[in-house]
Amino acid sequence: MKKMTTMTLVACFAALVGCTNMSSGQQGALSGAAVGAAAGAGIGALTGGHAGTGALIGGALGGVAGGIYGHNK
């Protein structure tokens, strides 16, 4: 679990640093996917499910929601 958390934090940091030349919709999608994956992995691990599956589902939903939010911003 500790390794997964560290890897997720590194991925989130790398995604946020690389957002300088993106449109607001792309930035929203990337940020939403990162936050959604982290939240999904955490929820999946805490509820006794599979953290990887939670990360995939959370990342997909977060990316869609973030893209919509960033596009409308």
Rank of each mutant, 00 (worst) to 15 (best):
K2F: 15
K2V: 11
K2R: 12
K2E: 14
K2Q: 14
K3A: 12
T5M: 15
T5G: 10
L9Q: 05
A11F: 14
A11Y: 14
C12W: 11
C12Q: 06
A14D: 05
A14Q: 04
A15P: 07
L16M: 13
G18D: 09
C19R: 04
N21M: 15
M22T: 08
M22V: 10
S24M: 09
S24I: 06
S24Q: 04
G25H: 14
Q26E: 08
Q27S: 07
Q27D: 06
A29W: 13
L30D: 09
L30H: 08
L30R: 09
G32C: 07
G32M: 10
V35T: 04
V35Q: 00
V35S: 03
G36Y: 00
G36C: 05
A37L: 10
A37Y: 02
A38E: 11
A38S: 09
A39Q: 06
G40R: 00
A41E: 06
G44P: 07
A45I: 08
A45G: 04
T47P: 03
G48T: 03
G49M: 11
H50Q: 12
H50F: 14
A51P: 04
A51C: 03
G52E: 01
G52A: 05
G52W: 02
G52Q: 05
T53A: 10
G54M: 10
G54N: 09
I57E: 09
G58A: 08
G58E: 03
G59I: 12
L61P: 12
G62D: 11
G62P: 07
G63R: 12
V64Y: 01
A65C: 07
A65R: 05
G66I: 06
G66Q: 05
I68L: 08
I68E: 03
I68S: 00
H71Y: 15
N72A: 13
K73Y: 05
K73A: 13
